[in-house]
Structure formats: structure tokens, C-alpha cells
Design a protein around this nucleic acid. Structure first.
Lengths: 278, 278
DNA sequence: TCATGCTGAATTGTATACTTGTTTGGGTTT
DNA sequence: AAACCCAAACAAGTATACAATTCAGCATGA
């Protein structure tokens, strides 16, 4: 998407010369997700430019891109502010992912794919099986699982073979908490962790089989239902603020129940006279 | 999305002071859709800057935006080229719109909306009824119909009350031929024009009723099915090149059957020696 | 005490100069 | 004659200077 995507590698100097725009994009996204810039705050171009040593032009491009992704929101007075999401929006995002993955599963089912076409997906599910059967979840347990899980969902979309569908899913996945494995880390803390994981794995199997059998409607429903697990995790995790910190971009999600104290407003500069209206 | 969204009077109205970025965006989009720049061609910043009297910076922002919308494609060597769509992609885009509108209809159904909430949608359908019953389609016939049709689809999404869903639909509707009324004008030339229009209107009624009755699954299927009409129109229109010219952005759609002559390549400059690679 | 309008600092939006990379055409060599 | 190399032209990426707008803070007056 970014115009500087083409800069794959090095210049003659041998230095990793990623385009400034890409650098700015990555840095800014990190800053937002790590809550270095807090939700609701403005993102001043100049400050970012000074801090990163990148000039304003690429930074501006990155801001534009991040606004496209939905992490930033254009301010009425120009510039951008970090978007805050309430629990409902996160829910809706996961729901939409379910809808789109359902559409993908249906399309994949209707393409009468060969056995070989489905091999990668089958292998992926198989690999997850062997992970899920480990007695003791080791340190790489979850990172392995997350990787395979993302691969599963990625393959699903690829099998649908629709550029527009892929684009739509890319858009929604730009919201980190909409990702299929967004809550896996937090889920690990839940008492029913293993149970949830096994249920997810059963669903992976079911989706794969439905696609292999060309059962489009069934595959769609199953894929959609599969996203219900993420919704369930969201509900469980959102209840405890501590768990929310384990979710990538969790700082962007504002709790529904706002404390009575207006502590949040104290530190950010506020217009003292908003009664000026009329 | 664009940083200059804040400009009060922006789009189709007689905008007195639009930001340069917005101006560039509108101008460029028009140039692309009118095939002033043909599909597959590069869009040179400087040329556009000279031609429009706008400096490169806002033009670059507009190019970025248009790439986000999907009308432009980043080139490997930097810059952008006008994207070409084959018939399959147009089909997929309409299909995806159907999926998303289906999701919207379902959500709307499940919100237990009051009679008053549905009034705008009901009024819209009513207005379309009175148009559809006109004996002689006048000059404003189609423009009125198109306006109301777009309004219907817009209201449908609003009733779903989901920001992410709205965003996803905005993305797909940025492709002009994915619009619900993209083929209405071309459809008018078809022999079964009136019949198609009446069928569409029946579907509008059915969707409205399903939502009013809270029948989510039914509303979803109906809305999805409704997009089938557009697919049908696409098939009918795509058969004849002349009709394709009546479709907005039709120049971006490349025919499936490519003539044996390589005439298209003759005019565009080609690299003579691509064997230079090692 | 509060409303109102002015002013200056800050920040975004725009233009342009400059740098870096890609392309292309011609000359050279085999 | 074909392939290759090099260099000049060109276009995109980046930095920075400049203009326009916004907003806080203060002064002024009711």
C-alpha cells in the first residue's frame, strides 16, 4: 500500500535502508499499540518527527495510512487523534471478521478444490493437533499455536481466491484485537483455557471437512461460529483490566464502565470554556 | 479518511474553498473514471500537478488515498498505476457487497427497532414505489430512482449501527461498479428493464418487512439475494461493449476475451530487453 | 464575574528544492 | 549483429521553508 513498499533491501552502503515512510509507519503503529501515545490524544507531526529523526513528509504519509487502517481518527481541526474503541466496537469487529471468514469458507467450498489444494490447510490443522495434545504447554506453546492459527485463517482466505474479500479482511485485521489470535494470550490465563483451545481445534477440523466436502452453507456457518470463540474470550477478558493488558492494542479499548472520577481529564489539557457556544 | 475531510463544503456541491488535497482527490478520481488516464497506465505526479495547478504534496496524498480505495495499484518501481479489473473481480465485489449488506440486514433485524426507527426506510421504499409505477419513465426517472436506491442501501447500513461494517462497505463501494445502482443506467437499455426494476422493488419490500419483523436470517438471505440482481445485470451488460460505456468506471473493466492482436501493447512503451537479468 | 474579541504561539496544510533510485538510449565490445 | 555497460534524463521519495488556520490566554468592557 505504501509507496515505499518497493524498498526491499539494501543500498550500496549495505545498510538496511527501509524507506522512511515504512519506518515511520512501523514506529508509529508501535507507539500507538504500546500506548506511548494514549487513546484520545493528538499525534503531533512535529513531535513525532523530532523523536524519530524522520521528516514530516513520510510521517504524514504514515499518519494517513494509519487513519485508513482505523487506528487514527481525523480531527476536525486537522491532524489525527488516536482512536479509542469501546467493547461494542471490538465485538462488532470480531463479528465482521466472522462474517467475512464465513464468506471465504463458502467460496472455498464452492470452488471444488482438489485434494492437493487443501493440503496446506490440512497440514496446518494437523500441526495444531499435535500442539494441542502436548501435556505441558511449554514456553513456545502459545507462540507456535498463534502462528499456526493465523496461518489457518490466512489459508482460508487464500482458498477463497477473491481479491476484494482479501482486502476487506486485511482492513478489519488492521485492528489488532480483531485478529483470530488476539485473545489467545489472555485466554491462557483463564481456567477453561485448555477446554477452549480444544473446542477451537474441533471447529478448525469441522471447517476443513465442510470445505473438503463442498458444503458451502455449512462451512460458512461454522466459520462464522468459530469467531464466537473470540467474542467469548473478549467477554471473559474484558471483565478484568489486568488481562486486558495482555491483549495487543488493549490500551485502545476503553472500559464500558467509566469511573465516576474524571481523573482522565485532569492530565490532558481541556478547553476551560466550552460554554462559549451561543 | 482524508485529512482534509474537515473542509465544510467538500464534495459534489459547488465547493468554494476545498482543500487542495480534496480537490486533487476529486479531480484524479474523475480522470480515472473518465478514462482520461487509461487502465494500466502510470499516473505521473508531476504531469498531474502541472495539469491541475496543484502541487505535488496534495496530489501524492490523493494518490495514496486512491490506492487505498483500490482504484490505483502501487507500482514495483514506485508510483502508482491505474488498476484494471476483470469481470470476475467485479463479480466478486458485488458478491461481497451482498454479503456485507446481508450482515447489515441481519444486525438491523436483531436490534428490535421501533416503528419510528424504520420510518425513513419505509418512506424510501414508498417513494420508489411511486416512481416504479410511472407509466412513462421521464428524464428524471432514473436519476430519481438511483438516488432513492442508494438511499435505501445507505439506510440499511445505518440501521445496522456498526462502525466497522460501515467502513467495510465504504471500502467496497469505493469501486464504482460495486455500487447498488452501478448498472441501473445500462440496465435501462435491456428489454426486460421494467421487469428487473419491479423485481428489485419487491426485494426492497421483502427486506424491509423481514427487518421490521425481526427475522434476521431471512433478512440476511434476502439482502444477499438482492445483490444477485446486480450480478445478473453485469452479465447482461458485459456481453456488449457499448453498454459497458454507460457504467461508471466501465473503462476500468477489461473484457475477458482479449483480441488476438496485441494492439494494446503497441502504443505503450515496452522494455525491449528484459533478458538483461543475469 | 462573566462574556467577548484580539493576539500570538503552535500546528497543520501546501509548495518547492533537493536526493536518490530507476529507466533508457547510445556507444562499445565481443 | 547482439549483448552489455554506462551515463544522462527522468520520476519518485524526502526534507524543509512558507502560508493559513486554530486555539489558548489575556485584556477589556459590560
Amino acid at each position: 500500500m505504501s509507496p515505499a513498499h518497493r524498498n526491499p533491501a539494501l543500498t550500496r552502503s549495505g545498510n538496511v535502508r527501509a524507506g522512511q515512510t515504512v519506518k515511520a509507519l512501523l514506529r508509529l503503529r508501535q507507539m500507538i499499540l504500546d500506548a506511548e501515545i494514549k487513546a484520545g490524544e493528538r499525534v503531533p507531526e512535529l513531535a513525532v518527527a523530532e523523536r524519530t529523526g524522520i521528516s514530516r513528509t513520510p510521517i504524514r504519509a504514515a499518519l494517513l495510512q494509519l487513519a485508513e487502517e482505523g487506528l487514527l481518527q481525523p480531527s476536525t481541526s486537522g491532524g489525527f487523534i488516536v482512536r479509542a474503541f469501546d467493547e461494542g466496537e471490538v465485538f462488532d469487529a470480531i463479528d465482521l471478521r466472522g462474517t467475512l471468514e464465513g464468506a471465504a469458507a463458502r467460496r472455498a467450498s464452492e470452488r471444488s478444490l482438489s485434494h492437493a489444494d487443501l493440503a496446506p490447510l490440512r497440514d496446518c490443522v494437523g500441526a495444531m493437533d499435535s500442539i494441542a495434545q502436548r501435556r505441558k504447554p511449554g514456553s513456545e506453546f502459545f507462540s507456535d499455536y498463534v502462528r499456526l492459527n493465523e496461518r489457518f485463517h490466512h489459508l482460508l482466505v487464500e482458498l477463497a481466491n477473491s481479491a476484494v474479500l482479501r482486502r476487506a479482511l486485511e482492513q478489519i485485521l488492521a485492528l489488532p484485537f480483531a485478529s483470530p489470535s488476539a485473545f489467545v494470550l489472555a485466554q491462557a490465563e483463564l481456567p477453561r483455557a485448555r477446554e477452549i483451545l480444544q473446542k477451537a481445534q474441533q471447529q478448525h477440523h469441522a471447517i476443513l471437512n465442510a470445505i473438503a466436502d463442498g458444503q458451502g452453507a455449512r462451512a460458512e456457518i461454522l466459520a462464522r461460529e468459530h469467531s464466537g470463540l473470540a467474542k467469548q474470550n473478549l467477554r471473559a477478558v474484558a471483565a478484568r483490566e489486568a488481562d486486558m493488558k495482555r491483549v495487543v492494542g488493549g490500551a485502545l479499548i476503553k472500559r464500558r464502565i467509566i469511573p465516576a472520577t474524571i481523573g482522565a481529564e485532569a492530565k490532558s489539557r481541556r478547553r476551560r470554556r466550552k460554554i462559549s457556544r451561543k
